Amino acid sequence: MKYLIKLGFITLAGALFSANASASCKATLEANDMMQFNQKTLSFSKDCKEISIELKHVGKLPAQTMGHNVVVVDTTNIQAVATDGMSAGIDNQYVKQGDERVYGYSKVIGGGETTTLTFATDKLKAGGDYSFFCSFPGHWAIMKGKLEFK
């Protein structure tokens, strides 16, 4: 009987650990018409093989006027990637095509829309200095935050 109780506890603990491990590989981020993200930090486990960030534009303005996306880079590359992205244009989601400084990016969305960015973490190092930002022209200076991978 004690063996069955212990086995049940181990199974339950394993299920809870699995649920927590998978939950830490996903995050939800909201953006609004005031050029703000609702979070300044997104944290993920170094055990994640891929990361998913769901972006919800909770504003009302269209993508052409107040579009938002989420781009993940090394913190030191934010300004350079954003500047190159302006030239790439909205058809390229304001991200220079083939830019190796970019770990992942989502499409640009307008008010009431949702999109999900999913990318592999094989190039990220635990404890690295990573950030997320919106590459819509002029937004990157305000709309950014830390991405923790530990």
Rank of each mutant, 00 (worst) to 15 (best):
E148W: 01
A80C: 10
P62M: 02
Y103E: 08
T11N: 09
Y105E: 08
K60W: 01
L147S: 04
P137Y: 08
F44G: 05
G89R: 05
A31C: 13
M86V: 01
A21P: 12
K125S: 05
T11W: 13
S87V: 06
A21E: 15
M1E: 09
I142T: 06
N77W: 11
C25Y: 02
I5D: 11
G104Y: 10
G89T: 04
D122G: 07
L7I: 04
R101V: 09
L29D: 11
L55C: 07
I109W: 08
G98R: 10
L55F: 00
Q36T: 02
G67R: 01
T83V: 00
Y94M: 03
Y103L: 10
G67S: 07
I78W: 15
P137G: 05
L7T: 10
Y130S: 00
F119Q: 09
D84F: 11
K26D: 09
S106M: 01
D47N: 13
F136V: 03
A63N: 04
F149H: 07
Y3S: 12
P62T: 08
D74F: 02
G85T: 08
Y130V: 03
Y130P: 02
M86S: 07
K56S: 04
A63T: 02
C48I: 08
Y105N: 13
M1Y: 13
G112V: 09
W140D: 03
A13T: 02
G98V: 07
K40G: 12
H68K: 07
C48F: 00
G104L: 14
G112D: 02
L61T: 08
M66I: 03
E30P: 11
T65V: 11
D99L: 04
G128Y: 02
I5L: 11
G111E: 01
E100D: 13
F133R: 06
L12M: 11
A27S: 14
D84V: 03
S87T: 09
T41C: 08
H68F: 00
Y130C: 06
N32V: 05
Y105C: 11
K46V: 07
Y130W: 01
